[in-house]
Design a protein around this nucleic acid. Structure first.
Length: 599
RNA sequence: GCCCCAGUAGCUCAAAGGAUAGAGCGAGGCUCUCCUAAGGCCGAGGUUGUGGGUUCGACUCCCGCCUGGGGCGCCA
């Protein structure tokens, strides 16, 4: 680059240290585009080189500014730039406005839904999320998990990774057996018909069963005997399930299907398509084989019959301080644990699905567990282990405390979604009564879910969320509907304009700061997508979408498009509006939020 | 005891080595004969938990401490 050569030349001539690498970044100021670099490091290096006693030493910022000025003077205005300035130690180079605007918007219009898509990375990534337990209804915490995983999957896919979506439902365990027990004993054939009613009904059964099986304070001898009898029955069902008893297995599959039907319906509502289903029950056998393998490899220690099979991770890694500790991979009775199954699952991911990196969207409380898993995979020899990533997220609680099915303190996703849709319909009645009946229900779904999804994604994943209905279903301000509304407004202008001028307009007029700010944000979208994928953080896109909507609303209010009076300006602004709409739609899509045309 | 996460405006949250720490909500004022007001505009609101350190420059990195939450060999 010519400009860097000039800078190096100046340094050489003036006995300044050569800058190792010049770092250029976009100008932070609205109003004009360009790039900038600073000379603080250079000035600091120079100061360090001089003897500290030297009285000629100037404060670093002042010296940086001197260098910037000298270089600005020497550079003049290079080709392709409109002007150059030195401010507070920074050298700022400004692009020609019309050219930059033209280049940016041309790209958006021609690439359309692909604007912002990254180059193929040549790596396959699997995102594991949406893993609720069966026989238990889908609550607002599961919703956070599902939407975080889906947004992340969309982001890494758009950024250029081949992406597989995986779901890992917990379909077996004591909780599941508990439901089978109470169903068989008291509720056989009494299930309601609707998919969601039936799914939620299983949860009620679970709560009731747990109460029946729970030891109570001051229980009578009779109560105690009854509870113990129930407990024995439950154990017997578990035993029969384990032995493959056809009757119990059939009952289990039937009730599991009720849960899965409900789950699939919710995923459909959320436009989530899972590629690979792993069931916990199916990795049990492979997991046992893996234990043997790990023992033979000397990674695991078999202490049976006096103890379990375990991995002393720190010791095997040669660590002196305790960090990953020790974890058990097989109970002393020979049954598997969560960790055992996760190892089996990882092997499956690497060997059968050939994934290069694996992302686990799992509650952050399981952080240690997953770090242990990754380390054991590493000891086992899987080099993909270093590209395993735990996207932990804080748990969702209620103002009255943690969610607890047993205490009936649970907010179900479906309840909230239904309420959201009701509220949007009320809003439409008031704000857009002319909206045709047929469209209302679709729009209500889009906006209601948009509000819910954005409420989850606009908070960083590692923060806990206290779920308050009225806050999550707010439609004003920093919300999903605010962003959707910007899209609707852009669409409305384009609809009235009756199409875009096919020829790209030149932007050779005096652009307002609103226009410049908007084009600036649009131009940053591809870089934002890469950042979100690099950091595995949907929040980056959520923030961006809001900023873009905010810029569009301001533009919309202040800058006339259809009524601009000048044919040339009108054409240019239509291109800006069309690009804003497209970029908003692309960003919303990555967040799994619909971009409606009307609302 | 050890480990992880958080602490920023009254409240909920952003910003993750660079130029003046930003939004929303709440409270105050203005704004619909004009592309939909789910909007826009204007003011108020800050010792970034705390004490050190590194750096030309720290909300951001390092160390100590305080507060809150979570985790730690046969739950998932």
């Amino acid at each position: 680059m010519q400009i860097e050569a000039v800078i190096r030349e100046y340094c050489a001539e003036n006995d300044l240290p050569q800058p190792e690498m010049l770092q250029w970044s976009p100008l932070p100021f609205a109003g004009e585009w360009g790039i900038s670099t600073s000379f603080f490091q250079l000035a600091a290096q120079e100061a360090r080189r001089q003897s500290s006693a030297s009285s000629a030493r100037k404060p670093v910022p002042q010296r940086a500014q001197e260098i910037a000025e000298a270089i600005a003077a020497r550079l003049g205005v290079p080709a392709g730039f409109s002007r150059v300035e030195a401010v507070k130690g920074y050298l700022n180079l400004y692009f020609s406005t019309a050219e930059f605007a033209h280049r940016t918007l041309q790209a958006v219009i021609s690439e359309a839904a692909n604007y912002g898509r990254g180059q193929p990375k040549g790596e396959r990534v699997m995102v594991e999320y949406a893993q609720p337990n069966t026989h238990h209804s889908f609550h607002i915490g599961h919703f956070r998990n599902a939407i975080l995983g889906e947004a992340l999957a969309r982001i890494v896919e758009f950024a250029g990774f081949e992406t597989l979506r995986a779901s890992y439902p917990g379909d077996i365990g004591l909780g599941v057996i508990t439901v089978l027990w109470i169903y068989q004993k008291f509720y056989q054939g009494q299930e309601p018909q609707g998919v969601h009613e039936r799914g939620q009904w299983l949860l009620k059964l679970y709560v009731e069963a747990t109460q029946l099986l729970e030891e109570k304070e001051g229980e009578t001898e009779e109560e105690r005997a009854r509870r113990q009898a129930y407990e024995a029955e439950r154990r017997e069902i578990y035993r029969r399930w384990d032995a493959g008893d056809p009757e119990i297995r059939a009952l289990w599959l039937k009730t599991r299907e009720w849960s899965l039907e409900e789950l699939r319906d919710i995923l459909r509502m959320l436009d989530i398509q899972i590629d690979v289903w792993f069931f916990e029950s199916e990795v049990d056998e492979p997991a046992k084989k893996i234990v043997e393998e790990l023992v033979q490899l000397g990674i695991a220690d078999d202490e049976r019959p006096n103890g379990p099979v375990l991995v002393r991770i720190d010791e095997k890694l040669g660590l002196k301080k305790e960090k990953y500790r020790t974890n058990i991979i097989l109970r002393s009775d020979g049954t598997t644990l969560y960790l055992t199954k996760d190892l089996a699952l990882a092997k499956e991911k690497f060997e059968r699905y050939h994934v290069d990196r694996s992302i686990y969207v799992v509650d952050s409380r399981q952080s240690l567990h997953l770090q242990q898993t990754f380390k054991i995979l590493e000891l086992w020899g899987f080099k993909q282990a270093e590209k395993c990533f735990h996207l932990g997220y804080g748990f969702v609680s209620l103002p009255e405390g943690a969610m607890s099915a047993r205490r009936g303190r649970l907010v179900l996703f479906k309840e909230v979604a239904d309420e959201a849709i009701r509220r949007v319909l009320k809003e439409i009645e008031q704000k857009n009564p002319d909206l045709p009946e047929a469209e209302r229900s679709i729009v209500a779904h889009q906006i209601g879910l948009g509000a819910m999804v954005y409420a989850m994604l606009s908070v960083d994943n590692n923060k806990d969320i206290v779920f308050v209905m009225d806050e999550a279903l707010n439609f004003d301000g920093h919300t999903g509907p605010y962003i959707q509304n910007a899209h609707v407004r852009a669409n409305s202008i384009l609809k009235k304009a009756g199409g875009l001028p096919s020829q790209a307009p030149d932007f050779d007029y005096n652009l307002t700061p609103h226009e410049i700010n908007l084009i600036d944000l649009i131009s940053r979208f591809p870089a934002v997508v890469q950042q979100a994928a690099d950091e595995y953080r949907p929040l980056v896109i959520a923030n961006y979408a809001y900023d873009l909507a905010n810029a569009f609303h301001s533009f919309y209010h202040a800058v006339p498009v259809l009524q601009s009076g000048d044919e040339r300006v009108r054409a240019a602004r239509l291109w800006i509006v069309a690009s804003a709409r497209q970029t908003l739609a692309n960003a919303l899509r990555l967040l799994d939020i619909a971009a409606p045309d009307v609302m």
